[in-house]
Design a protein around this nucleic acid. Structure first.
Lengths: 189, 189
DNA sequence: ACAACGAATGTAACAGCGCTATATTGACGG
DNA sequence: CCGTCAATATAGCGCTGTTACATTCGTTGT
C-alpha cells in the first residue's frame, strides 16, 4: 500500500481507537513507521490528515448508503437512510464524533458534501412523487438535524441507552415533515 | 476579585472570543497576569479550568432561565425554555460549543446536571396538569435533543441562517411530544 | 511576641506537540 | 550517465501542558 493511504488508514484507526483527543501526528508517524516530513509532504499539516481521515469516514458511510437497495417508495428510502445514519453513529461513535466536530467548525469536507447531495437526491425523488411542505434544502437540514440529535442521544448517554420512544419521536418528526402537505398550516404554540 | 474567579472569568472570555481551539493555559495565565503554578494550584490541570469555565457558562444559562417569569401554563413555560435554549446558543455560539463538546466526552458538569433538573422540574409540573405520553426523563432527552439540533443548525450554518420552517418543524416535534396523549399510538412508518 | 505551619504564588525547567530548513535517496527521461 | 524531481530522513525550533523547587505571607498555638 502506498504511503499516503497507509497514513490515512492509520489516522482513521487511531481516531476510532482513541478519539480525536488521542490523535497526534507523532503517534500516526510512529505507527505508520514514517517520519514527520513525509506526513507533512503528503497532507500539509495535521488538520489536513484529519480531514483526509474524516473524508475516508464519509466514504465508508456513503458506500454503505449506496449498497442499500433502492425501493419503489422514495419515502421508505429516506426513512431507511435516517435509521442507517443513527446506526452508523452508534457503531462508530468516535469516528462519527470526529466527522461532526469538523462540520461545526465550518471546515468543508468534499465527501460530506457528497453525502448531503445523496440525501438531497433522495428527497428530490420524493418531491416528484408527492408535493412537500418545504423545499429540499430545508428538508435536508431537518433530516440531518433530527438524525444527528438521535445519534447524539446514543453517544452522549453511552453506555446507557436512551428511551426508545425518544428516538421514535425524533424519527416521527422527520417523517411528519416529509408527509406534511404544503399548504396545511399547523398550530405552532 | 480573588485569583480563582479571575482565572475562570479570563478563561470564559477567551473561549467566547476564540473558541476552545484558541484556549491555552499559557494564554490564560498571561491575560490574568498570573504564573502557571497558581493556575494548577487552583484547578489541577487545563481540563479543570475549562470545566470551571463551562460550569460558569451553565450558571449564566440557569440565571437566565430563573429570571424568566413562570406563567400559569406549564406548557408555555417549557416551550419558552426551548426557544430560550436555542437563543442562548445563537448568542454565544463558541461558549455553547464548549459546553456541549464536554457533554459528548462524558465529562460530568455539576451545573449541567442542575440545568437538567430545572427542565425536569418544569416537565413534572406539566405532568401534574395533564397526562404525558412519555416519562419525564425520556421527555427531557427529547426536549434537549430537538433544541440542541435547532441550535446546531444555526451554529453549523453560520453566517447563513437555516430556513425558519426547519426550526419550526423541530419545535413542533417537541410540542407534539408534550401534547401527545399517553395511549394514542401513532403510526411509525 | 513569635515560631511554625500551610496556602498561595513565583522561578525555571521537562517532555511532548506541530511543524520545517536542510540534506539525502532513488526512480525516471534526456 | 547525468539531471531532475518526488519521496523520505536528520535534526531542530517554538509552543504547549505540566511540575519540582523556592519563596512569600497570613493564621494560629504557645
Amino acid at each position: 500500500m502506498d504511503t499516503k493511504s497507509k497514513l490515512v488508514a492509520v489516522a482513521l484507526a487511531l481516531i476510532e481507537a482513541e478519539g480525536l483527543t488521542g490523535f497526534s501526528t507523532r503517534a500516526v508517524c510512529e505507527r505508520a513507521k514514517v517520519t514527520a516530513p513525509t506526513l507533512y509532504h503528503h497532507f500539509g499539516d495535521a488538520d489536513g490528515l484529519v480531514s483526509a481521515a474524516v473524508s475516508r469516514g464519509y466514504e465508508l458511510f456513503l458506500d454503505r448508503k449506496k449498497a442499500q437497495a433502492q425501493t419503489r417508495d422514495p419515502l421508505v428510502d429516506v426513512m431507511t437512510g435516517w435509521d442507517d445514519y443513527v446506526a452508523f453513529a452508534r457503531e462508530r461513535p468516535r469516528l462519527y464524533a470526529a466527522m461532526t466536530a469538523r462540520i461545526l467548525q465550518g471546515s468543508r469536507i468534499a465527501a460530506a458534501r457528497e453525502s448531503r447531495l445523496h440525501l438531497e437526491g433522495k428527497l428530490a425523488r420524493l418531491a416528484e412523487a408527492r408535493p412537500l411542505a418545504m423545499n429540499v434544502r430545508a428538508l435536508a437540514d431537518l433530516m440531518w438535524a433530527t438524525a444527528h440529535a438521535g445519534a447524539l442521544l446514543y453517544v452522549a448517554a453511552a453506555p446507557r441507552v436512551p428511551a426508545p420512544e425518544t428516538i421514535a419521536a425524533l424519527r416521527q418528526a422527520a417523517l411528519d415533515a416529509l408527509t406534511q402537505k404544503p399548504m396545511k398550516k399547523r398550530g405552532l404554540s
